[in-house]
Design a protein around this nucleic acid. Structure first.
Lengths: 193, 193
DNA sequence: TATTTGTTTCAAAAAATACTGAAAACAATG
DNA sequence: CATTGTTTTCAGTATTTTTTGAAACAAATA
């Protein structure tokens, strides 16, 4: 079939082809992980595309490159904006909106951690707290007539809440803008064998 | 309807009812998180049930309590065994297999981290490495005729691999049996404000 | 204000995923 | 090795999630 788009096939054809293949392979690879992270395949692929090209693309370019519908592209891009790992951009003399991915990998994962704490960990802590209160408020002093079974149940939930609160606090530190320094700390810590 | 099972309704009825409700609430709550973690709702619920009751239950008890089919229960339990957060147990004079959840919350998350590194992070590192090699092997010395675009592409993937390798190494330390000590370290680190 | 261009929404369709239930495989016991 | 009790498998079905595409909406232009 003939190419309907006037694609920029500058430079030696071999090189250009290879980079496009590498990009496509990355998009597919990133998309495969989507299931494990609780996001849709398309959302992961759109992010992968923006990240790996490093360019600011508009909705039509994303649709064309990933062969997806307009609605799907629109929703995926909006979700990525909400996650804070993609931002809007504009080009002079063009009314279309362009989208670009955060290029700093550490900044990108700080944003992801921030968002997952907010969406998953914190609501879970709140819920477990509520459930915990069903079987007696946490207070050492009260020598109430609590069955051994209830006591164990309470201890299990307390331990869980404690764990998630630690995760939340650690995550917050990592995710905060000041958390930048953690990049160095983490790499050092990881290396010590 | 009449209760077909001779359930152990020992103790004051009020107390027993409350703990059952708290357990059910926890099962539901834990089940809700399943989507975000890429596992099925049932698998999360089965784990929640075993964790929150602290008991060793057999397949029929799990089926009855969660109102799920035998096949579903069997597959969920096996998956949990593979994750290493549930183990088999046996009762004297009973041919059925019983299942119990890891009760130490930190040990449980060490197992989860270990498994997720193995299933998700490490394969991803391998894949990105392959993709990276499509556009030239990593070697500073080679003053090859590489386009600026390719150079940037390579840098992006290198940064990503580097990040995931750091995560993998940090995770391994946390997940290792020796990582036990990290529990204390993490709690301390989280508290410093 | 009408027109043109671009974006969002959402009901319906498609695709992916999870669940059931019954049969097969397996294991313990006499 | 036949019987009985238990677990696993898997084809078919049900449910949930994702995607499409067209209408509604919004913003800029003439």
């Amino acid at each position: 079939m003939e190419s309907p788009t006037g694609d920029n096939q500058i430079g030696p054809q071999g090189t250009e082809t290879t980079i496009r293949e590498a990009q496509d392979a990355f998009v597919a690879s990133w998309g495969q992980m989507s299931g494990a992270w609780g996001i849709s395949r398309t959302m992961a692929e759109v992010h992968a595309l923006l990240f790996v090209t490093g360019e600011a693309l508009n909705t039509d370019e994303v649709m064309e490159r990933l062969q997806i519908s307009r609605g799907n592209a629109s929703m995926s891009l909006r979700a990525l904006l909400e996650w804070g790992i993609v931002s809007k951009a504009h080009k002079r003399g063009d009314r279309k909106e362009y989208f670009q991915a955060e290029q700093d990998v550490w900044a990108m994962f700080r944003a992801i951690v921030r968002e997952r704490l907010k969406r998953e960990v914190e609501p879970l802590i709140a819920q477990i707290h509520e459930i915990r209160d069903l079987t007696g408020v946490k207070q050492k002093g009260k020598a109430d007539a609590i069955s051994a079974e209830t006591h164990l149940h309470n201890e299990r939930l307390d331990e869980l809440v404690d764990f998630f609160m630690t995760v939340d606090q650690l995550g917050q530190r990592f995710a905060s803008p000041q958390g930048r320094g953690l990049r160095v700390a983490a790499k050092m810590l990881a290396k010590i064998s």
